[in-house]
Design a protein around this nucleic acid. Structure first.
Lengths: 149, 149
DNA sequence: ATTGCAAATGATAATCTTTCTCATTATCAC
DNA sequence: GTGATAATGAGAAAGATTATCATTTGCAAT
């Protein structure tokens, strides 16, 4: 019925690799996530998923997102605003970080190897192995002419 | 009735300095916060505040905590677990950061000037002025003998 | 010290996000 | 294809936070 070489999204494959049952809904959500390069919250994911398969439930999106996070496929982020936001987890290469525009709320990703190793060193010196880094810096554009707040 | 040199807590003074009306409840909450060197959530703050003044309402704690945060007196933190936790905001000196023990959930504070300036530099290079840094690293004690996770 | 007014409070309802329940449906190994 | 097992849908429930509104309080001017 379907050729052996899967036409599935990278995340759907990852899902299978982790031994998770690959249901239609999970395939849809995995596709939507693979297709996203921003940081959607659950409601936004639900909206996008419904576009692909209208009979999906928001409860399933919550469930799947949690499952994917527990399996290292997704990372949960908190940028304020009260709801969790998600993005595809980084691979073997270093973490990436987030700069949040204080005025617009826009999220800008960045990487920095010096930061990677500095953090790793600090944590090691404290007697720990680094598991996760959660870093977001809030900044305000210099450009904006402000009346000396 | 009361001497001019206030016997209020440092945070109560700060509250007055910011032009906020200093009510009995705010004085109590400010005292409790000045007295805390951990990262209590609202319910825990409420518990401590009630010890001082039993007729305080949890709604007021929520309101006050929000007010203090908006005025730079408190900082809200998210260490996972679904509820916001608060701590007194840093003064002029550099921010401090948090290391969270992956196994116990214990929060360990640390400072690092190299990290301060590296972050400042990165943000500046991206065209922003640094407003806030939210950094928590999750780590696992090396000591713990684990069967090669 | 008293008064007046705007703002804060208490108690609870309402809201918002997330999780749970349970009957139905779909997946995967055989 | 069949069956056991797990996933889903829809809505209820839970947990955290905010809003409502009548009453009380702080504070500035008197």
């Amino acid at each position: 019925m379907k050729e052996p070489n899967s036409p599935d999204s990278p995340l759907a494959d990852l899902c299978r690799q982790r031994g998770l049952k690959l249901t239609g809904q999970r395939r849809t959500i995995a596709f939507v996530l693979s297709d996203s390069d921003d940081h959607p919250d659950v409601e936004e994911l639900y909206r996008r998923a419904v576009e692909v398969d209208p009979r999906i439930s928001i409860a399933t999106v919550y469930r799947t997102v949690r499952l994917f996070e527990e399996n290292g496929i997704l990372q949960r982020r908190d940028f304020g605003g009260g709801r969790a936001r998600y993005e595809v987890a980084d691979g073997d290469h270093g973490d990436h970080y987030h700069l949040i525009d204080a005025d617009t709320g826009k999220v800008i990703e960045f990487e920095n190897t010096e930061l990677d190793s500095l953090l790793e060193g600090i944590v090691r010196q404290m007697g720990y192995d680094l598991v996760t880094t959660r870093l977001s810096v809030v900044g305000r554009t210099k450009a904006k002419t402000r009346s000396r707040g």
